[in-house]
Design a protein around this nucleic acid. Structure first.
Length: 558
RNA sequence: UGGGGUGUCGCCAAGCGGCAAGGCACCAGGUUUUGAUCCUGGCAUUCGGAGGUUCGAAUCCUCCCACCCCAGCCA
């Protein structure tokens, strides 16, 4: 475990624990509740937990914290495992379930009752709230707080046996109703829920709460560092209380870090679910969703997401991270690794009037400007081509580095051409451009010394293929859609998806495998959709556009 | 008005008494058959504020301010 210069506070703590002999092997865990899809915030937690274990040569468990069957399902258990694996992490041993510890947890509850540290309370939810007090006023003891052990034991057993209705009774810890920490005001350990559990079926009608379960789950698994987000900080005294009052073999410690808040997005499960339920997006894996499944479909790579999590660091402060950092991470990865290809999104026909009809030249083009190991592909060059309509103007100033009537441009990986004429329809719209090829300009500048103004992509009109290209943009047009008075749904970006049906792609792109990423030169990074793409009907999703200093400076507007 | 936290460049973030790393973003140049990449340079005399301790403070002390979390039988 080599240490680099900068280390975050968790690494410091662990290094000290190891140095002091308090810990031999670091054990962490990623403990999602299977009640939704994992998102970018979870990705950070996954990177933190698995990353720490990796760095210190320890282990990390994947444990489903499935203590609330009403909200959970197998669908989420499956998707979560797939997402963690896809991110590139391997959990220690088998997947764990809090539910597999239910009997042990129950036995410990009995133990607490026997020790006089827990009691059965008959207050209903509303009454319990009244007795709890407020942030500034202490609570009052429940009238059932002093039941004797035998009676509590009997009542608890009957709760377990299903003799009481939901909400009729709960098991509570006997701590301190006057504590300034609300979590210590006789917290609930068990509640009655007469619903089947996705793992334990109808075995149980009482289920432990998060507080009574989490620390003990950690102890059972030998977790040394139980890492969670800041909002659980107030729960730490309770976490420690259970550990101190139960006969446990190990002593896990809880540490908290600031959760990730990416700009221009939402990450609350409730809001993500609303986007799905209201059909604002096509599903949990819609490429605009900040879910792992969505980002995957969008073309983000595991290494880019991991890089991003590393970039943002792990601290105890909570702030908003600019999504530009995520975008940087994915561009960096794809720039390095994605093969280049050509695609014309908004086709304009170019006829090379001096080029023989029916002739097809096969031009070799490198798949990457610096990665020779990525090889090359063949581009068929023909008399009729498509270029992007934005790449042609009848007249333009010298800053416009594309094709202009009477001027020259380099066709990427092919000839320099010169626009000689333009064909228009009665309304004056440009139908096609007639051009001539400048001889011997493959790999060479024109012999006459008149250099082209720029380089543009193209696709053979006769040899190229057509594809569906989905242009995705951010889902929200507000930096913090969560914040402020207005409902987050009012900040939806109406132009977050634009579908281009008739894009032209170079033929080699038909061989793309689902989930394979490319850079469509001068356009951006695209990925073959993992579900909808096929050789016969190619479908590409735009992962992220290229940086565009031309557009940023208003160039396209003039 | 209770308790728990956090405040270092537009954003993230090092720093832990010795004189403000780095990344993102941005700006200015250079290279370029991607207006991409790449390269070079710029970008906090100042660390939420005010006092104090010290030869010396972002780092120690005091007070103040701002923001976040907690009153689910959710996690």
């Amino acid at each position: 475990m080599e240490k680099t210069a900068a280390s975050n506070f968790l690494e410091t703590i662990i290094a000290e624990d190891i140095a002091a002999g308090r810990v031999q092997t670091v054990v962490t865990r990623f403990p999602p509740e299977p009640n939704g899809y994992l998102h970018l915030g979870h990705a950070k937690s996954i990177c933190v937990n698995f990353g720490l274990a990796e760095r210190f040569g320890g282990r990390c468990n994947l444990r489903f914290d499935d203590t609330n069957p009403e909200k959970e399902s197998q669908e989420f258990i499956d998707s979560i495992q797939a997402d963690v694996r896809w991110l590139g992490y391997t959990w220690d041993g088998e997947v764990r379930f809090a539910s597999s510890y239910f009997q042990q947890l129950y036995d410990w509850a009995v133990y607490l009752v026997e020790q006089g540290h827990a009691y059965v309370c008959d207050l209903n939810a509303e009454q319990a709230r009244e007795y709890r007090g407020t942030l500034t006023e202490p609570g009052r003891n429940s009238p059932h707080r002093d039941r004797d052990v035998a009676q509590n034991l009997d009542l608890l057993a009957r709760m377990k046996a299903g003799e009481f209705a939901e909400g009729e009774k709960v098991l509570r810890a006997k701590i301190d109703m006057a504590s300034p920490n609300m979590n210590m005001r006789d917290p609930i350990l068990y509640r009655i829920r007469k619903v089947a559990h996705h793992q334990t079926g109808s075995d149980w009608v009482i289920y432990p709460t998060y507080d009574f379960a989490h620390g003990q789950e950690d102890a059972i698994e030998g977790v040394t560092h139980s890492i969670c987000t800041l909002e659980f900080e107030d729960h730490r005294p309770l976490y420690d209380w259970f550990i101190a009052h139960l006969p446990l073999a190990s002593r896990p410690r809880q540490y908290e870090f600031g959760r990730l808040n990416p700009s221009y997005t939402v990450t609350s499960k409730r809001k993500l679910k609303q986007l799905v339920d209201d059909a604002v997006v096509a599903g949990w894996d819609d490429p605009r969703m900040p879910t792992i499944a969505g980002m995957r479909r969008r073309g983000y790579t595991p290494s880019a997401i991991r890089k991003f999590c590393q970039m943002i660091g792990t601290t105890r402060s909570d702030g908003v991270v600019d999504v530009a950092m995520l975008e940087f991470a994915i561009r960096e990865d794809l720039n390095e690794n994605a093969p280049r290809a050509m695609c014309v999104l908004n086709p304009l026909k170019v006829v090379l009037t001096d080029y023989p009809e029916g002739k097809v030249e096969k031009l070799a083009a490198a798949s990457h400007p610096s990665r020779t190991d990525l090889g090359e592909r063949m581009l068929p060059f023909t008399r009729e081509l498509y270029i992007d309509a934005d790449d042609f103007r009848e007249e333009a100033n010298k800053k416009y580095k594309r094709l202009v009537l009477g001027k020259r441009v380099r066709l990427r990986n092919a000839y320099v051409i010169e626009a000689v004429d333009v064909v228009k329809d009665p309304s004056g719209a440009v139908l096609e451009v007639h051009a001539r090829t400048i001889p011997d300009t493959i790999g060479n500048d024109p012999a006459d010394g008149i250099k082209p103004k720029g380089v543009i992509q193209w696709v053979s009109a006769t040899e190229g293929r057509q594809a569906t290209v989905r242009l995705y943009d951010r889902l929200f047009n507000h930096e913090s859609p969560d914040k402020g008075e207005r409902d987050f749904m009012t900040h939806i970006n109406p132009a977050s998806l634009q579908v281009v049906q008739g894009a032209w792609i170079e033929p080699s792109l038909c061989n793309a495998l689902p989930e394979q990423g490319f850079q469509f030169e001068r356009e951006g990074y695209f990925v073959a959709d993992r579900l909808d793409h096929s050789e016969q009907a190619p479908v590409f999703n735009r992962t992220i556009g290229l940086r565009d200093s031309w557009a940023e400076h208003g160039g396209s507007g003039e």
